[in-house]
Amino acid sequence: MHGMGRPLKRLARNLTAILCALGCLVSLAACGSDKEAGKIRVGIKFDQPGLGFKKAGTYVGFDVDVATYIADKLGYSADDIVWKEAPSKQREAMLQNGDVDMILASYSITDERKRAVSFAGPYIVAGQDLLVRKEDHHIRGPEDLNGKRLCSVTGSTSAVTVKKKFAKEVQLMEQPGYAECATALFSGIVDAVTTDDIILAGLASASRGRLRLVGKPFTQEYYGVGIKKGNTQLAHKINAALADMEANGSWQRALENNTRGTHYKPDPRFNPPKPTEGE
């Protein structure tokens, strides 16, 4: 038995060395191929003018400006940000899987979502509103939609809210995105588009004056910064950045720059909001 001891020890040492070497190779391969090392990955919308919009290889909008400000306070320059598209249905999974570090994508804070992810913020309180053609003054609020044709995005709760609370006789057209709804509104196929006011303000701004926001929000949507469940340390840092952004006027400037020409003003009863999530 004693004669067998030394060979077994040598074999164990050799195996340990091989495993260590393999571990180093794997970690080196991972680091070498990971172009996102040292970066911060941020999920945004790519198709919402005024909020998150991909334009000729650049990213613009209020969500983009807020995310850039937060990243700077966390120690990342604009060049350190990797922007990732965050479709509504994929947001929770992207955070849970670690595909992104945070999401700013018109992401309303709800109790249901908080079971899967955590939030920092809110950074703005939007409200459901209506977008109409510039010359149409018959629609002054959701109660004027009876008998009218309304467009919203497939699966959106916005149209359901209008039908449930205000206009039982509304005719609903569903489209895959709000750009398609805006096109239907341009061409007279529908009479109004409904979703959160800041999204509609972005569409109005992109329309170059052909569409206008009614300006009578009838819900409150608290937009938060989505982060991985339970990361309170990151939530605290993000909240500090948001409070700083609001205090020094950067928040107001970002809002005005991204909704220029629309006369959009978020409801002053709720804005700018105090960041309280994750505290």
Rank of each mutant, 00 (worst) to 15 (best):
22 L>W: 10
216 K>T: 14
246 E>L: 04
185 L>M: 03
63 D>I: 00
103 I>M: 01
151 C>V: 09
1 M>T: 09
260 R>Q: 13
234 L>K: 08
84 K>D: 00
17 A>K: 02
180 E>G: 08
166 F>P: 02
235 A>D: 04
134 K>Y: 15
97 N>V: 00
107 Y>V: 06
211 L>G: 13
128 Q>R: 10
238 I>V: 07
27 S>M: 09
7 P>K: 11
151 C>M: 00
269 R>Q: 13
132 V>P: 03
5 G>C: 07
191 D>N: 11
228 K>A: 12
82 V>G: 03
117 V>M: 15
2 H>D: 11
72 D>H: 13
59 Y>Q: 09
236 H>G: 02
170 V>R: 14
217 P>T: 04
62 F>H: 03
100 V>T: 11
272 P>M: 02
179 A>D: 15
274 K>M: 06
127 G>K: 10
178 Y>E: 11
86 A>C: 09
260 R>W: 02
17 A>L: 14
208 R>L: 02
269 R>E: 10
50 G>I: 05
98 G>K: 09
213 L>N: 06
221 E>T: 15
160 V>Q: 09
48 Q>H: 15
214 V>L: 13
95 L>I: 11
220 Q>Y: 12
185 L>W: 00
252 Q>A: 15
243 A>T: 10
61 G>M: 13
136 D>W: 11
193 V>K: 00
143 E>F: 07
254 A>V: 06
229 K>Q: 02
54 K>I: 03
78 A>L: 06
140 R>H: 12
63 D>K: 01
154 T>C: 05
114 K>F: 03
123 Y>H: 12
198 I>A: 07
102 M>I: 05
76 Y>Q: 03
124 I>P: 03
128 Q>S: 02
122 P>F: 10
79 D>G: 00
141 G>S: 14
178 Y>F: 12
167 A>N: 06
166 F>Y: 15
117 V>S: 04
227 I>W: 04
276 T>R: 04
113 R>H: 06
100 V>N: 12
194 T>S: 08
223 Y>A: 12
150 L>V: 11
263 H>D: 08
80 D>M: 04
144 D>L: 11
44 I>E: 00
204 A>I: 05
65 D>N: 13
163 K>S: 10
185 L>A: 11
74 L>I: 06
43 G>Y: 12
256 E>Q: 11
154 T>V: 12
160 V>S: 11
278 G>E: 08
58 T>L: 06
34 D>C: 15
